[in-house]
Design a protein around this nucleic acid. Sequence first.
RNA 1: GCCAAGGUGGCAGAAUGGUUAAUGCGGCGGACUGCAGAUCCGCUUCCUGGGGGUUCGAUUCCCUCCCUUGGCUCCA
Length: 479
Amino acid sequence: MRKFQVYDSLAREVREFAPLVPPRVGIFVCGLTPYAPAHVGHGRGFVVFDMVARALRRWGYRVLYVQTVTNVDDKVIARAAEEGADPLALSDRYFREYLECAEALGIRSTNYYAYATDHVPDIIAQVQALVDRGFGYVASDGSVYFSVARFPGYGRLSGQKVAALQPGARVERDERKQAPEDFVLWKAARPGEPSWESPWGPGRPGWHIEDTAITGRIFGPRYDLHGGGLDLIFPHHEAEIAQAESATGEAPLVNYWMHWGLLNMGGEKMSKSIGNVSSLEGAIETHGAAVLRFYYLNAHYRSSIEFDPQSSLREAGEAYATLARPADRLFDLLHADGPERAGADLPSARADAAEALVEQLDQTLAQDFNSREAIALLFGWSRRLAEDLGSLERLSGPALEQLASPYRWGQDVLGLFERAADGRGGVGGAVVAVLLQARQRARARGDFAEADRIRQELRAAGVVLEDDATGTRWSAVRD
RNA sequence: GCCAAGGUGGCAGAAUGGUUAAUGCGGCGGACUGCAGAUCCGCUUCCUGGGGGUUCGAUUCCCUCCCUUGGCUCCA
């Protein structure tokens, strides 16, 4: 297991990571509340944690990565009422849409997406434990609240003091609560809303309880790593700590808290409630999932980033094209001829440099997941390879693999450099190859009118040609 | 008001108690090319919010002020 360091929001410092039960690592991330299409801001944290899980697995940890889906809550219910739809069907539909985006983005390290509604018995059991231990109280209408005053550690994660909070400023006072800072564990049912039977009558889970009920079920009272957006620290993560540690009597609930920075647009955070959203699906369609993934990882996960719909992904696309070009060329050659292809060996200095770079990439990422710095190193490698792109043809399969090893690292950990399904195979690819040969013969005899005609007709069919020193390359484009 | 995270070149965005503060985008110049396009090379040395302090030396550590964002409602 490779050692690594991570910034822990609770300790407010970078700490050496040590699992509770090596080599196992339990990772939990607060996922979506699917009541509307996912936006570009949502994708960031999930890509970041996908990278975290990939890295830990590469480094020898056995990761169990769980993410919640808050498929029943006030917003889901309100939205369903607007559309005249069933709340659970609505959240299910939006979540499936998100999963398609996640798949395109190469997010595939999550082991389990836990729907809140699939864990109602766990939730009820945890609420009951809190009532039994005197941390929860039942209000007249059958709702159950957590008594913040009973938990002295409340506010430690966020730095907030209960006395300094401003209840009533933005949240309505609620006479069912004993104190304004108390939060709801179980909400009594209202007519027409989804509800489940409980010892306190029909109702549904409160805002924070599902996460700790689910992690309790899967990891037990304590686990290693919890991730989420910066905006969830208070009250959500604070409430998780309070209710879980009170329910089990064990602490700390989480050994390392990781919070990623938010994605802003127009100077404030992208948010469904503000309305400054750019849809995730749309961004993937117009710029490609690889470019979006590159954009996210091209900044340190803790910084906030400013998203400009006009330029951010266009710039990222230019940069990613430069970065990935040598990788594409290497993988093309390996794909065409296989790893056994004959050719020259790599000079040993070059081979050593590749090996050293891979180690450096791991070390860089092990420093609080500095993906930006890792990408800068990969740019350095691409720049060196760019100089001799033309002479790659001479190299053997193993030599090409050595040159490609930093990009293999990028595939493995960052999820970049994946070869898209480019339509080059099959009958279509064979036909294009024949046309390219015909065009090449025309060029050779100086019949440029014919050569250009072939190029134009292929373009009309969605195939773009580019000539360079090594010949003609083609790619399928979408219009 | 209180809490938290930040303020780096035209832009995006790293790092560091000490030679020219990454990397990319953009810009400029050149090479290559039948043409397109793309690519490659070079340049872009005057960038670390203001003011104090510690130090031989601070952008990095400390104090303070200003500003931005997030949180004190649901929120990735």
